[in-house]
Amino acid sequence: MFWKYVLFELKLLLSNRKNWLLCIVILLFFPLYFSVYSQTELETLRDKKIKESEAFETIFYQFSEALRETPEGKEIYNNFTEQVSLINMQRFYLRRGEDVHYIDNGLRVNELRLQMHERGNKGIPSYLVVPKEEIFKEDALLRYNKEHHLPLQPDPFVASNYLPAALNTISGLIFCIIVLVAGSGMLAHEQQNQSVVTGFPISFMKKVNGKVSIHFVQIFLFFILGILLGGIYVAQKTDVGNFDSPMLLFQNEEFVAVSTGTYLAYMLIALALITLLLLYGTVLLNLLTKNMYATILILLIVFFLPDLLVTVGIKMTWLHSIKYIDIGAILSGQLAAEFGNSKLDYKHGFVWLIALNLIVLVVLYGKNKLSYIRKAPVKLM
């Protein structure tokens, strides 16, 4: 009987024009977004190193003569001199294509920059200080490239570099809205046609799981197809690229470099968990509000609640778990920096997304049991 019910729900889903329209939007997003992405001006390594070299002209010009005469000042000045020398050599190695020497010099530059952080960055104008976060990011990328013998300057517009950028763009609010709108009408037919649906002798949770399953498959199937279509389209326009090239992940208060293939796998697993969470959450709120528009509005308010509280100066760390839904910003470490919470990393993200799914399921089960008890006839003595 369960599979007959699923087949019945599947027929309803296939006749839902709204969901088909959303699926077409997902399908076309990845190939169409490339026209926007390809117009982006990305800074090359050569441009970056030119800026870094030119910055030392300002540093040397503003360096205090009084400080330079002290033993500490001489060490700082020597540090600056070595840094600019290494950076200029990096520019030379880029022209020669000598990646190994470029990486070795880059790792030494990062060491010197961290030494300056330990000294409090004396003698450096604040706007020219390279943040520790950027130092650790560059260090992770350089070490990964050195270990895997990868080129330093891959084409940013090949499929392997485009797909993570497209996923980061669609994840978060855009993805949430698509899933919420697609799942908002899951209970509409039951609420409007009680006599038809009650003909299926199936438990409430089995019905919910059936509804969520077919909506999940529809959404994620088109999502995967969209990624494949976008990858094929971009590969024909430029090239496939190298899925072993590095991507940065924020983990345990530091940045680690992983392959692009691994990064995409993490993203897809997380988005699958987010899809399930939003669909089950939609069912729960639909039961409470009996209104799909109110359901969408409430879930969007919940999504922005941590941001709103931070804006008014209220810091509730336990609410930050809601932001794991914005998985792109979690993986990049953006939200950890924004909220000042180092626990907002991808490992905690997976744990919390699984936990939140289980919590919503428990609440759904409990609410159904409570409703059943209230409706049960009272036996007279």
Rank of each mutant, 00 (worst) to 15 (best):
F204T: 11
P201L: 03
L271Y: 09
H149S: 09
V362N: 01
Q90C: 04
V310C: 07
L276S: 03
L225E: 04
L358E: 08
S53T: 14
L305A: 11
M1A: 02
K146M: 15
I232W: 12
I174M: 13
I76C: 08
I327R: 02
V208H: 12
S342Q: 02
S259C: 14
L21F: 15
V240N: 07
F30N: 07
Y324G: 01
A188E: 06
S245D: 13
T81S: 08
H148R: 10
N291T: 00
L285W: 09
V84Q: 13
K367C: 10
G120S: 06
T198C: 03
V100F: 14
N79A: 08
D104R: 11
P71V: 02
L285A: 00
T40E: 15
A188T: 08
E72V: 10
V130D: 07
S213P: 03
N16L: 05
I330A: 10
K323W: 10
L278S: 02
S321P: 07
L13K: 00
Q194M: 10
S371V: 04
G97A: 01
L27Q: 00
V130L: 03
L271E: 02
L331Y: 14
M381W: 05
Q62G: 03
G328K: 04
K206V: 05
T295N: 08
A355T: 14
V256K: 06
K315E: 09
D244Q: 14
K4Q: 11
L364W: 13
F222L: 13
V130F: 00
M89N: 13
G106T: 05
Y233H: 05
L344K: 00
V258G: 08
N16P: 08
G241T: 00
A182D: 12
K51C: 02
L297R: 03
W20R: 01
Y162E: 04
L27A: 06
I274D: 03
G340L: 01
G185F: 10
S342W: 04
M116A: 13
N357L: 11
N368H: 02
L319W: 11
A329F: 12
T262I: 07
P131M: 05
I87P: 04
L114I: 10
L225G: 11
L268S: 09
L10Q: 09
N88C: 07
K369H: 12
I219S: 07
L335T: 02
L221M: 11
I214D: 06
Q236H: 15
A235Y: 06
L7A: 15
L67Q: 06
F243L: 10
L309S: 12
G106D: 14
S203L: 09
L299R: 00
R119E: 12
L187C: 01
K375G: 05
I26C: 07
V130Q: 08
S371A: 07
T81I: 01
I170R: 02
M316S: 07
G97M: 03
K211N: 15
A182C: 05
G73L: 01
D47C: 02
R46M: 10
D139F: 08
I87E: 11
L180H: 11
E133D: 15
L225I: 10
G333L: 04
S38W: 02
L107Y: 08
C176A: 03
